[in-house]
């Protein structure tokens, strides 16, 4: 799929392979929803072209809609409608829907089936919306922040469901600002920020094969030339990135010896570490390196 929409989404180029889970990851306001809604035919791309299942989502919308499932971020149900009644209604718009009761049970809607939508918890509303998205047996689903407002058990249920969808041959495109969600689920991740794609790849590629990182935060600003001097102290197999005047990110094959070196270097520079963390490199680190900002 290709897009191009100005301001909110600028010059975004991305392709989704069938039968995969693709995560569009980015902070709030990055343009994730705009991107999805352009694919769903709600918005017209002002520049560029969009093709979904080989169709133009604007001009061939009627052909496209029965084949896709859409989960919107906000709303989507009458306030007075009962949970299972809503699901049953959506199922009746489709030719060959899933068994509504089985699906409701699977998503834990059995207990609240007769509860009006407005009285459902946030997590129950999300699960109902997800059920509405897949009840028509789509080929491709767009799910916008599927686990927002869910408790950990709800998130797990949702993840397992999305994985089973892929196994059964459904293509999944989801947005999230949770990097753990993207890392756990996605075959490919596209990180977008301020409407632009800043990184793209498999989770392994984006975290560079699970190499290590060290995050250093000190109590007062580093002296001039600190990153360079640390780089020399560590040797050139490690990368040093400046995050702010009190924090640095060290990437590469780091171990406990590296930690000792960093700690010794701090003493020599006359700065006091506030925190010094060694960990697996995560998508959070990738985002931080590229934008200099935290993801969430």
């Amino acid at each position: 799929m290709r897009y191009g929409e100005k301001v909110a989404v600028d010059d975004l180029d991305l392709v989704v392979d069938r039968n995969t889970i693709t995560a569009v990851l980015g902070p709030n306001g990055a343009g994730k929803t705009t991107t999805l809604e352009t694919c769903e035919g709600y918005r017209k791309a002002q520049q560029g072209s969009v093709s979904v299942l080989g169709l133009d989502p604007q001009r061939q919308r009627r052909d496209l809609l029965p084949r896709i499932g859409v989960m919107l971020q906000d709303g989507g149900a009458w306030s007075g409608v009962r949970a299972m009644e809503m699901l049953r209604h959506i199922s009746r718009l489709h030719a060959d829907p899933l068994d509504v009761d089985v699906l409701g049970e699977r998503l834990g809607l059995g207990d609240c089936g007769r509860t009006p939508y407005r009285r459902l918890s946030g997590g129950q509303q999300q699960r109902l919306k997800l059920a509405m998205t897949i009840v028509g047996r789509p080929e491709l689903v767009f799910v916008d922040e599927p686990t927002a407002g869910m408790d950990p058990a709800g998130r797990r249920t949702t993840w397992e469901l999305l994985e089973q969808l892929r196994t059964d041959g459904v293509t999944v495109v989801l947005t999230t600002h949770h990097m753990d969600e993207a890392e756990r689920l996605a075959d490919r991740i596209h990180i977008i920020d301020r409407g632009r794609m800043i990184a793209s790849g498999t989770p392994l590629e984006l975290t560079r094969g699970g190499s290590s990182t060290i995050r250093l935060v000190v109590t007062k600003p580093f002296p001039d030339g600190a990153p360079e001097s640390l780089r020399q102290a560590l040797g050139h197999h490690l990368e040093v990135t400046t995050i702010s005047d009190v924090s640095l990110l060290i990437t590469g094959p780091a171990d406990s010896t590296t930690l000792a070196t960093v700690s010794g270097w701090c003493e020599q520079q006359g700065v006091l570490p506030e925190s010094l963390n060694l960990g697996q490199r995560t998508l959070e680190d990738t985002f931080l390196e590229i934008t200099g900002r935290e993801l969430s």
């Binding site: 809609l65 718009l93 030719a95 060959d96 089985v102 059964d168």
Partner: peptide, 13 residues
């Protein structure tokens, strides 16, 4: 559910 439950079978009523 067993594998294949969600196998696409899209279409409008």
């Amino acid at each position: 559910q067993p594998t294949g439950t969600f196998t696409p079978r899209p279409g409008a009523a």
